[in-house]
Simulated scan of single mutants.
Amino acid sequence: MPVREGRENDYRQWQRRVDQAAADFRGFEAAELYPPTSGEQNTWSVVFRFATIEQLATWLDSEERRELLDEGEDLFEEEPKQEILAGEAPPPDAVTAVVSHDIKPGHEREFAQWQHKVRKVQEKTPGFMGLELFDPVPGVQDKWVAVFRYDSREHLDEWLESETRAKLLEEGKRYFAGYDVRKISSAFSGWFRFNGEAEAGVPPNWKQAMTVLLALYPTVMVLNLTVGHQLDLVRLPGYLSLFIGNALSVSILTWLLMPLVNRIFAFWLVPGRMRKVVTNLLGVVAVVACYALFLAAFAWVTA
């Protein structure tokens, strides 16, 4: 979805309302928001997961969704595109490309054969993790969609920019009139990788340090007061207790607290260009206030 420049914060607020509305529908499993990568002209991606295609279609055709789309119309430079897929969720560390194709009438079989040929070539490329081809869903999804996954953004980009793929696309143009590529990075690709890029999507070092401290301090304190106390009772060696504590801390940060903190402070970690100074100041004040709150809470608990 191409969001208008300067409307990023308004879009986030609107998208949260959409997510909440979708969550009230039967079969809803998750909603994931992916900010734009460099060169994508402020295009955002949203993944809604439902248990079945029918339940997803109910949400897509609902009056609630139509009203929200009308309300948020001025947030976008053009009408948002959507792809509807039936399949399993991607592996946690995968980087995914979603490629939708407009197939020329009568060339469906040739396209499927061509796509099989592409897969055979892709299977030999570094980092390839799998490919799924989704047929159109009558009345819901008109395009053919290929979803392929790699173990890193670098390996995915190597394939997308390779001469081999360029030659295959030239051959495939006999069967499709056009295609669209969207790259989606996993939420677990790193503590601060909002858009999958090695540098562009990573906040400055000072923001990283403040944010990690915000999540790390209460984690260590809670573990010391609970698990640490139990480890002391069983008289484990200090080096082993420290290793267990660190392993628990890293796990909690990686899979629980850092994704949560990133989501809450996304407005500050990846601010819109139009409000960067004000947003930075508000973010710093909010983080420092959280520091003070944690210090006061643990001072009272340990008194």
Rank of each mutant, 00 (worst) to 15 (best):
P2E: 12
G6H: 02
D10F: 08
Q15A: 15
A21R: 11
F28L: 03
A31V: 05
A31Q: 04
E32G: 00
Y34L: 14
S38C: 01
G39V: 00
Q41V: 06
F50D: 07
F50Q: 11
T52G: 04
W59Q: 00
E63S: 15
E73C: 02
E73P: 00
F76I: 01
E78I: 02
E78M: 10
E79C: 00
K81F: 09
Q82I: 08
E83G: 01
A89R: 14
V98S: 09
D102S: 12
P105H: 09
E108W: 04
F111L: 04
Q115V: 06
H116M: 06
K117E: 14
V121W: 10
V121M: 12
T125D: 11
G127S: 02
L133I: 13
V140K: 13
Q141I: 03
R149L: 02
L156G: 07
D157S: 13
K173R: 15
R174F: 10
G178S: 14
G190M: 08
R193K: 14
F194E: 06
V202A: 01
V202Y: 03
W206R: 11
A209T: 09
V220W: 11
M221Y: 00
D232R: 14
V234E: 05
G238E: 14
G245I: 03
L257E: 02
M258P: 06
P259S: 08
F265W: 10
V277D: 11
V278A: 15
T279P: 09
G283E: 06
C290Y: 10
L293I: 12
A303F: 11
